[in-house]
Nucleic acid binder design. Structure first.
Lengths: 231, 231
DNA sequence: CGTAGGGTTGAGGTTAATCAAGTATGGTGG
DNA sequence: CCACCATACTTGATTAACCTCAACCCTACG
């Protein structure tokens, strides 16, 4: 049996509730799948036979509009699970999934997993927490889209990604964007053009230095003020 | 024991998984609460000690921005439960709740409910479905906010509320708005002014007749076309 | 009759999308 | 090693959607 796989599974909040035997059983029926950059994993509406764990790389979950524009809901990183909730809806996946860069995922079949839900109440509680976190995440996105402008959303993202122990950015700090700017734009619910312009504006106003994917914080205080204005 | 209460509880998808004894036990520890129009039930961030079932009237779940504007996430009607998910997050309610009109709710304490989760796997599965439905609902809201204009959202709402067996509106059909227009505006993520203007435009274009809260469908085909354009 | 609340209408301004063009940058094949 | 191309990114000009502010209407109700 694959030791590294078991290790990864144990590392997730959800699956760590399983005992050794269950973990091994689940590992046996799971399937690995390699994805190339931008390769689709599933589409919105596809029937759901199980959920996924990211083994390597990252997977993007996104909605797509009739005219083709996209909004990224979440980027699942190595060690994270996704599509757990979809297993319990009759209407298939509520979003699309594709690899950000080359990636590998582990597919965990619904049937075996649900069987384990039936005997372990700890596993149930973990899954409830998982789903509740999703609900939180989605309500946060709704709040952002409804009440905040792109500038505020962008700065929020930076703070969230790069904050120190105090939960804040500090002057001189280097922020290296590890994802494409256009992907980030989609995550912020805007276009690459607007994203670029907002970065530019922050630079012109002396809050941030921009050098390709390398950002340098110039005026952390001002940045924090902008997001705190709309909570 | 209150027969009517038991009846209501049995009527919900979630609680119908409980057996008689459990139902009675839960009814015993539950608490009824009457709310007057616009009375707050809880605020975002409040600690969560349980969830709610609407006994009468309706309860509105909404986010509120720093400058005071509101976005309604859901209007829970008689017989519906809400805040189930919040029980499993460490960060309190993710939204505010208040009565739309005079209403009555039943508070179901977390502790007893979670205890029942531990022994009934059917109950767990129902709850998973509940949470998955919430996730679906929230992703739909996100889709609407990100990709669709107010006109399209409004028509979608009307179709959703008043569709016949075929899932469509028909010419001459009377649609009676049972909630305040300003509340509807908040539900559609817009302002009363814009809401009013959109209705006006639909009337001017001969798609709809507007007489206070009474709408009459003039051109169902055209209405459906508008929403189908953006899926 | 007067007032209050919900609703409507108009003018003006802001945000951000769209369209179009131009600039790096990195990889590939000659 | 260089020319070429694809791709991401940037910038400018224009436009569209929608919000804000302000005034006004209408109806219910004291």
């Amino acid at each position: 049996m694959n030791q590294e796989l078991m290790q990864m599974m144990r590392g997730t909040p959800l699956l760590s509730a399983l005992n050794e035997a269950e973990l091994r059983r689940l590992a046996e029926v799971s399937r690995r799948r390699k994805l190339s950059r931008k390769e689709a994993l599933f589409l919105e509406g596809d029937p759901v036979d199980g959920f996924y764990l990211v083994l390597a790389g990252a997977v993007r979950l996104f909605k797509i509009s009739a005219d083709g524009s996209e909004l990224t809901l979440h980027i699942a990183q190595r060690g994270q699970t996704f599509a757990e909730a979809a297993m319990f809806t009759p209407r298939g996946f509520p979003a699309n999934a594709e690899a950000v860069d080359a990636a590998e995922v582990l597919f965990l079949p619904r049937e075996e997993f649900v069987a384990m839900l039936r005997d372990g109440d700890e596993l149930c509680l973990r899954l409830f927490r998982d789903l509740a976190i999703w609900i939180r995440r989605l309500t946060d996105i709704i709040f952002s889209l409804a009440f905040r402008d792109v500038e505020s959303r962008l700065i929020s993202y930076l703070i969230q990604q790069f904050r120190d122990e105090s939960g804040r950015l500090s002057n001189g700090q280097e922020l290296h964007l590890d994802v494409e700017k256009s992907l980030l734009a989609s995550y912020l619910g805007t276009t690459p053009e607007t994203f670029s312009r907002v970065l530019r504006k922050l630079q012109d106003n002396g809050l941030l230095n921009v050098d390709g994917p390398r950002l340098t914080v110039i005026d952390a205080e001002a940045l924090h003020e902008i997001v705190e204005l709309d909570e």
